[in-house]
């Protein structure tokens, strides 16, 4: 790993390969001379600085938000957005909290997202069981249809759904949103799960049927325990996706009492009460739940994003 090699041209490469007595994992970090100059010299610090700079750019809006959520309006107009608050100002937070009745919005969001996550996964599992394990006729078509449905812009469904909800007495009712998203999420869940269940070990199924287990029992005592990790990823995904949904809740939930957090925050835009601290405090408390989920489920999520990508 001595630096002189840097100055040598291509000769460095075979040299590294013949370098004996190294631990087995070492080749991964071994590099050609070009790289070595790139990585070992001062330039790696430049690379780090560049990556950190991007990270800072990503974080600046959050920093500005936190700084100004607790800064009095007068302080803001005098000292600007980057100053430390002169004193801790909590009126913005209190204003927002009381005006939108934040605890109610939190309960609404949790209720809608949680119900959708559970129903959506159950519906996905049932359909995927028939498609993946049962190999129902025309399954390719059904799965393709579900996948396409997932790509539909919601605008193409929203007006008829809005009409239907009014006709069955579900206008401005959270159940309308729950039903719609259960189906939309389950369309994706079915697509994903049926490809997972399509490779379910047949030996396990045969053993179950030899033991006299019917389809229902096979599903819950053989299939369910095996795919549970995938299901838990789906539950988290459905929850967060539904939590972040905006368009359909905006249209379907027309009064304050039924709205979710993003809709409640967005509908306050342009309101005279929304001065700088109130807006920032509103954005801050509205994003805290999402950040908390992310921290709790970070591992599962990054694993899930990856799984979803290769599927």
């Amino acid at each position: 790993m001595a630096t002189p090699i840097e100055t040598l041209p291509a000769a460095g490469a075979p040299g590294t390969a013949l370098d004996g007595g190294r631990p087995p994992r070492a080749p991964r970090t071994r590099a050609t001379d070009v790289d070595r100059r790139h990585r070992r010299g001062a330039s790696r610090w430049f690379v780090l600085a560049g990556a950190v700079l991007v990270a800072v750019i990503m974080l600046v809006p959050f920093a500005i938000m936190v700084l100004n959520a607790f800064k009095a309006p007068a302080d803001y107009s005098q000292n600007g957005p980057l100053s430390w608050p002169v004193s801790l100002y909590t009126d913005g937070l209190v204003n927002f909290w009381e005006r939108v009745n934040f605890p109610e919005k939190l309960v609404n969001s949790i209720w809608i997202s949680g119900t959708v996550a559970v129903f959506g996964v159950v519906l996905s599992l049932l359909s995927a069981y028939a498609l993946g394990v049962g190999r129902v006729r025309g399954r390719m078509w059904i799965v393709t249809l579900f996948l396409l449905a997932n790509m539909l812009p919601q605008e193409v469904l929203v007006y008829p759904l809005f009409q239907m909800a009014q006709e069955v007495g579900l206008s401005n009712n959270q159940w309308s949103v729950i039903i719609i998203f259960t189906v939309i999420q389950a369309a994706f869940g079915t697509y994903l799960l049926s490809s997972v269940l399509g490779t379910f070990p047949p030996a396990l199924l045969e053993a179950a049927s030899l033991d006299g287990a019917g389809r229902w029992r096979t599903l819950w005592s053989i299939v369910y325990p095996v795919v549970r990790p995938t299901l838990s990823v789906l539950v988290i995904f459905f929850f967060i996706w539904t939590w972040n949904e905006f368009f359909i809740p905006l249209v379907m939930l027309t009064t304050n009492a039924t709205q979710t957090i993003p809709v409640a925050l967005a509908s306050l835009q342009g309101d005279r009460m929304m001065d700088a601290p109130t807006t920032n405090a509103g954005a801050l408390v509205s994003m805290i739940p999402a950040i908390v989920f992310f921290l709790i489920f970070q591992r599962t999520l990054t694993r899930g994003i990856t799984a979803g990508a290769v599927k």
Partner: peptide, 14 residues
């Protein structure tokens, strides 16, 4: 991970 509407409200103010 943020609801896109929430991020938008923040940027709208910024």
């Amino acid at each position: 991970i943020l609801p896109v509407a929430v991020a938008g409200v923040l940027w709208n103010w910024i």
